[in-house]
Design a protein around this nucleic acid. Sequence first.
DNA 1: AATTATTTGTACGTATGTATG
DNA 2: GCATACATACGTACAAATAAT
Lengths: 250, 250
Amino acid sequence: MKSKSNHTKSFMIYEELVEKIQNGTYQPNTKLPTEHEFMQQYEVARGTIREALQMLYQNGYIQKIQGKGSVVLDIRRKYNFPITELVSFKQIAKAMGGTSRTILQELSLIKPDAFIQTELNVSTAAEIWKVVRTREIDGEKIILDVDYFNKQYITFLTKEICEDSIYEYIENELQLSIGFAKKEILVEEPTEMDRTYLDLEGFPNVVVVKNHVYLEDITLFQYTESRHRPDKFRFVDFARRFANYSYPNM
Amino acid sequence: MKSKSNHTKSFMIYEELVEKIQNGTYQPNTKLPTEHEFMQQYEVARGTIREALQMLYQNGYIQKIQGKGSVVLDIRRKYNFPITELVSFKQIAKAMGGTSRTILQELSLIKPDAFIQTELNVSTAAEIWKVVRTREIDGEKIILDVDYFNKQYITFLTKEICEDSIYEYIENELQLSIGFAKKEILVEEPTEMDRTYLDLEGFPNVVVVKNHVYLEDITLFQYTESRHRPDKFRFVDFARRFANYSYPNM
DNA sequence: AATTATTTGTACGTATGTATG
DNA sequence: GCATACATACGTACAAATAAT
């Protein structure tokens, strides 16, 4: 999972601590070194350490307890699944282990119909890339991804890019920074497309994840529907009660 | 949505800005005042303003763009639904408007079976509150909530509390601070319980949200299954690509 | 039971870097 | 090149919660 360059001290410390939590250097339910110890270890100001710890906190790696210290959580380890982050299928497949394959069913430039005009907020004149891909895991076609990209921002696409990772291409080749996405999870009846491209095995509905994806400058460039066979669908989320807004500092 | 006291300057500023975004004082796709202007307006240090803005950013209210400013997003307004936060049904029902009702089907103290022992990480000796509630919206029973509370932490429950809001009771009466939760969304076949307590109308499966809820001191005190009729299920999530770890400051 | 030390939380101020216009 | 605005980092002080004396 790489993206734009982030060579700040706090981010590098964060990455190092994530690594040490994942490889067991810091064990679940034990305390991390104190902020003061980290200060000396990394020779940075306390605020810098607190930023790194805040990222760990925000992403569910640790719990910070005032007066006590930071405790390593094992939630990530227990559910080794991408938790509420924007990740591509390639990353998920890699994390899950099993054999996976992407089959490109369609790659075309289209004029947006009324639905796509609304979802991508474009006029009839716009040009849109339509990408249809089947995701096969352990020999079963269980996910159908239908993507629509605004050609104004994603100017060029090829079969090879779609079969690898479009996100990697967007961030590394096109040098665009993906900012955020709004996800919506629903259950729908299978469409004709679902029936042809998925191994539905008689399941009477599909779980649909609808995604609007924005760049960092707030331009909406992608609308995606990820259509899952219900028995294979799983979504894991980590939520804090108040995103306990204790922020680093100063 | 209230919880533990948070009277910090940055949090109060955050709340005030949320209010102003929601009531339209700050319009979507326009820029907020600069950090410098906020500094003068609130007579606080820049870091304090940046903390407040960071909370807005993290929760999808604004996008921060270096060199330009902070732009108000309309994602929250478009999907007026609790976005990836720990919220109780009472809050959701209130936000949705329509008529809603909670029916308490069962409230009992039980000894945990093998499944609950695993999910709540307790021994056979523990005592567990079991709460079964039906959620009715516009006259249809579409959600079945099955909660298990560790009596060690939630010592006392009544019919009235369960029919109102257990979360309010936990936070306001018991003065416990809820820390975080791990959610998992799956699709399952209806159980006998689902069939008796839900208006399933022939739907062959239910969407199940499994929830492990922890206090701020990391004690696991609740396991919940929220079982939804699939046609009425909807989950909205806001995700940042890298939770762009720019933190306030210093 | 009261005090002190430790550890995290909030807030202030300053300096410099980087992106935008 | 310059001004503006956000980003990162340093340092200091004190508050609040916890743990140890």
